[in-house]
Design a protein around this nucleic acid. Structure first.
Lengths: 139, 139
DNA sequence: GCCCATAGTATCAAAAAGGATACCGTAATG
DNA sequence: CATTACGGTATCCTTTTTGATACTATGGGC
């Protein structure tokens, strides 16, 4: 994902948007960023414990990509039980308005989730797809 | 993508964020949304012409997912040369602050793209060669 | 001597996303 | 009669992403 990210810039007005989306796109990146916004500094397993269902490999991947993109800083302490601290860079902290806007939108429109877990899954049995009966007439 | 979207809500503070990201996640969704923000109403092939490198199948997919998520409205006119109009719903228009924030961030931090096709990391592909900036770009 | 914690790698397999191509039915156009 | 435009489907294939599992090195506690 971090490899071919900037391969489609044929969308003139959406370039920056897409580029920014690409940075926070990833199954766990937002959550990681969010936790780092809250806690400032976290070690690898601290993050892991805060996101129970992430696997070690995925967390490593996401952290590496975030680091490549300059959003987080990785500080390795040459200790023998390894110690690695993750924190946001200035650039990463700059994402706050985006995450804020995302969260606001989500809170406003998707607040049916979050309280009861799996609430509405509008996959294929939701009636909002085919408006067969009320099609406006042609001109 | 639209199928397993709400399957990981174990991230207490990031729920809404992730849910919102999931909606605009997809290779062409942002661009489509952006164009619809600009033009209000567009037909299928109008969108297609504005995004030259999207395939018919992908555009259909993205539009269907956006529709499923309630972000766009699909109006089918029962004409014989088919006519389908796409427009944003209120919910879709509500995404504007997000896209705005994304674009601002991108403009601020990634402005090395878009003007001169260097300075980035073109990776292994073509270094984003087709960079014809000629559209009005009113946003 | 054995096990745990730390922060990862390596490898394989499955699933999802995306791309390429061909096809559909009809109306108007040439 | 053939072609074009419209808005898609259907099918096959490749690439990308994700998951599961096993493995590493080392020091300290038991």
């Amino acid at each position: 994902m971090a490899k071919v990210r900037h391969s489609r810039f044929d969308c003139t007005p959406g370039c920056a948007v897409e580029a920014a989306v690409a940075l926070i796109d990833g199954k766990w990146k937002c959550v990681v960023l969010w936790h780092l916004l809250e806690e400032d500094v976290l070690r690898f397993n601290e993050i892991r414990r805060r996101i129970p269902s992430v696997t070690q490999r995925m967390l490593t991947n996401q952290l590496r990509e975030l680091e490549e993109d300059g959003l987080i800083h990785r500080e390795v302490y040459p200790q023998v039980p390894p110690k690695v601290e993750y924190s946001l860079t200035d650039m990463g902290r700059g994402l706050f308005p985006i995450l804020r806007a995302l969260k606001d939108w989500g809170d406003e429109h998707l607040n049916m989730f979050g309280q009861n877990g799996e609430a509405g899954k509008p996959t294929k049995d939701q009636p909002l797809s085919t408006e067969q009966e009320s099609t406006p007439l042609a001109v």
